[in-house]
Simulated assay, not measured.
Amino acid sequence: MLLNLAYGAVGAVRKAVLAAALLLALPAWAEPVNLAALGDSLTQGYGLPPEEGFAPQLEAWLRDNGHDVSITNAGVSGDTTAGGLSRVGWTLTPEIRGMIVALGGNDMLRGIDPANSRENLRGILVAAREAGVEVLLVGIQAPGNYGPDYKAAFDNMYPELAEEFGTLHADNFFAGLAVEGDPSAAATYLQPDGLHPNAAGVSKIVAALGPKVALLLDRIDRD
C-alpha cells in the first residue's frame, strides 16, 4: 500500500514537471498581439453600435482568419492629422506592437494644406519608429474640387511617406466600397450623411483592408 502511494506521488510530480516544461516551451507570442488603430470618425465607428465599428469588425475578421490579435480603438471623431500627432505618444503604450494610421480625411474636408498634413503624418511615423512599432499607413483619396494640384499633393503624401519610412501602405480606406461599373452603388454602404460607412460598409472595408493588416502582423517581431 505504501509502495503504491509512493509511486502515485512520483507520478504526480512527474506530471507537474511535464506540465511546467510544456508551459515554458510555449512561444513568447502566445498572448494576442496588440495593435492600435489611430484615426478619426471612420476608425472610431461614428454612428454605429460599438461592436459594429471598424476596430471590432477588423479584430473579428483577423481572428476568423487565424490571427490572435487585440485592436485598441484610438479613433477620435473629427480628428485631423494634427490631432493624431498630439496624442500618438499616449497611444503608443508599451504593449502596442503595431499601429494602423488612418488620418487625413478631416484635413481634406477643411482644405488644410497637404504640406501641413504631410508633416503631421511624418511626426506620427517618427514616433512609431522610435517606439519600435510597425505601421500600416492608410490613405484616402481627395476629390477633384480643390483642383488637380491639391489632389495630387494630398493623394501622393501617403505612398511617399510609406516609402520614406518603409511602412506598409493601403491606397484608400474606402477601397472596399468600390463597385466596378457602378459608382453610385457605394451609397448603399454609407450612412445617410454620405460620409460614414454603415455596418455593412465597414464589413466590406474590413474585408479589403484585412489582408494588409495581416501583413502588418507578419512584420511584427514576436520574440
Rank of each mutant, 00 (worst) to 15 (best):
E51D: 14
V88E: 02
K151I: 00
G105Q: 07
A200S: 08
D171Y: 04
N172V: 00
I205K: 00
Y158S: 05
D218R: 09
L42G: 01
E31F: 01
A208C: 04
N4I: 11
D155S: 03
G166Q: 13
E52I: 02
P192K: 15
L92A: 13
F54P: 02
E160M: 12
N34G: 00
V69Q: 12
H67Y: 15
F165V: 06
P27Y: 15
Y7S: 10
R118G: 10
L58S: 04
G105C: 08
P94E: 09
D113T: 07
D193Q: 14
A162E: 08
T167G: 03
P94H: 10
V33I: 10
Q191A: 05
P27C: 14
G176P: 07
D113H: 12
V88P: 00
G47D: 13
T80I: 12
A12F: 15
T81R: 04
R63D: 03
A115G: 06
F165C: 05
A187E: 05
G53S: 03
G176D: 05
W61K: 08
R122K: 13
L217Y: 01
F54I: 02
L215N: 13
A185G: 06
G139K: 02
A207G: 04
G139R: 01
L168G: 08
L216E: 04
L58H: 06
Q141W: 00
D171P: 10
W29L: 05
L168Q: 07
V10C: 12
L18D: 14
L18S: 13
L2H: 09
K15M: 14
V13C: 13
R110E: 14
A199H: 07
L85R: 14
K204L: 09
A153S: 05
M99A: 12
P192H: 15
H196Q: 11
P183D: 05
N156R: 10
A185R: 00
Y150D: 06
K204M: 01
L22Y: 04
L2P: 01
N116I: 13
N4W: 13
E51W: 13
I100F: 10
L26K: 08
A199T: 03
N120D: 11
G201T: 02
D68P: 12
R110A: 14
N34Y: 04
P143D: 12
G147W: 11
W61I: 11
V88K: 00
A185I: 01
S203G: 11
T188N: 02
D64P: 00
E59M: 08
I112N: 06
R122A: 07
T167N: 06
V135L: 11
V135S: 07
N156Q: 14
L190S: 00
I100L: 15
N116E: 14
G11K: 07
G139F: 03
A153M: 05
I100W: 09
A200T: 01
P49M: 07
L137G: 08
L137D: 09
P192N: 15
